[in-house]
Nucleic acid binder design. Structure first.
Lengths: 110, 110
DNA sequence: GTCTGATACATAAAAATCTTATGTATTGAG
DNA sequence: CTCAATACATAAGATTTTTATGTATCAGAC
């Protein structure tokens, strides 16, 4: 991503939406999914991702399930009912945000 | 604005674009212009705006001109050559960002 | 067999930016 | 004359992100 500062504030929205669409996922998987969806343009850093996931869990948006794969540990995250509702509203907010910014920056409606 | 955290990282882009389109402007005028363009959805706060303008001036993106209107002081900001180029590239970056986010969030191409 | 890159988690210090609060002062409307 | 709007500014605190570091497993190349 050329301008990482634009990404600020979108991390939660991305996590919510990806989890909503793909169900139960673990942290590393989320980074790969986002990298794939963005065709390499967005690389979530671990230092931002894990604290965000922990915060969301503490806020009741996510639940976790730890699974042992061989000797390796994976922590799966899934949305709670509240989290699913939040995914919906956050995405809607983002769409509104884009529309507003399009007006302010006078971009083509394309 | 419903979700102020989405605005993070877009302040400079907004300032650059508004100044590019409207030429010389003063701080308060920028807040009013943005409020108008966004139909009331974006209210730049002074605590964010003025430090941002000062930073941009220090970075050589803007030049200032202080004008006395009666007993009141107005500080006009204008883009330097560098600033104009930056306005262009930042807006382009934002358009890219929107496209990428649309893919990640799987939004309609509308 | 061992080295490297990918997988997989985590935290902490530092940087950056924004919100909220506060301060000063002018001007116009009622 | 008082209040809302105009006009600037800074500082403390909150929040989030980057950067750096740490631990450990696993697969494939050599």
């Amino acid at each position: 991503m050329h301008s990482p500062e634009l990404l600020k504030g979108t991390l939660q929205t991305i996590i919510l939406k990806v989890l909503k669409d793909h169900g139960k996922m673990y942290g590393y998987e989320i980074t790969q999914r986002v990298k794939h969806l963005s065709e390499g343009r967005i690389s979530l850093t671990e230092g931002a991702l894990y604290p965000a996931l922990h915060r969301m869990e503490a806020d009741g948006i996510l639940t976790t399930e730890t699974v042992n794969i061989g000797k390796r540990v994976r922590k799966y995250y899934a949305l709670t009912t509240e989290g699913k509702a939040m995914a919906k509203s956050r995405v809607a907010e983002f769409v509104d945000f884009i529309d507003t910014m399009r007006q302010v920056l006078q971009l083509k409606t394309s």
